[in-house]
Design a protein around this nucleic acid. Structure first.
Lengths: 94, 94
DNA sequence: TTTCTACTTAGAAGAATTTCTAATTAGAAT
DNA sequence: ATTCTAATTAGAAATTCTTCTAAGTAGAAA
């Protein structure tokens, strides 16, 4: 739940890709798993870590479990990065 | 050198603390190591990873090795985070 | 040129992470 | 109630990461 968890969560490429997939709209676990050359169990493990970090939330519907992105958790990370002083002026802040 | 390396680098609390220490001014390895309950060898290992990720650079002076922060590497990370859409409007962008 | 200082590299141990298979759960459908 | 579907949990194997001790290196000092 702290910045440490957020950063640990996004240090893995599979988990970043999951967040990318959920950017446009929420998706059920199966649909997410289908995007990877990994077993559903493994993807479920990654979903659990993302959920623990607060980056996604789950919602049951029929017998699917939909996952939603929660990007607001990144605020703390952003503030830390900015506190270090960003040298190269990224143009698009938002 | 890619975002993947940056995120891996900052996923460790020791390495984040090193970046914090270098925020104000560059410091020699020994002075950095002194801040941790770790051997100099271990801190050197963390410095190597940060260097490989491009987050710090080294500079010899006398027989000290000074490390400098290079926060511009964060740009790619920032752009990715913003691409996910930050929910909670952090007020201070810069 | 030997010695000393500041630090790194090598190699190994221990810990944590990622992945799999197999078994289980929760709810929907029959 | 049984079965089927979607997904998770448990447990183990493989890999990666963190840390240490011991040995090495680069340059300064003597």
């Amino acid at each position: 739940m702290a910045m440490s968890d957020t950063l640990k969560a996004i240090s893995d490429p599979v988990r970043r890709q999951i967040l990318n997939l959920l950017k446009s709209e929420s998706k059920p676990a199966g649909e997410i798993a289908a995007q990877f050359a990994l077993t559903p169990a493994t993807v479920s493990y990654h979903l659990k870590l993302l959920k623990q970090a607060g980056l996604i939330s789950e919602r049951r519907e029929k017998n699917f479990i939909y996952y939603d992105l929660n990007a607001s958790v990144f605020e703390e990370v952003l503030n830390w990065i900015y506190s270090l002083g960003i040298g190269g002026d990224s143009d698009d802040k938002k």
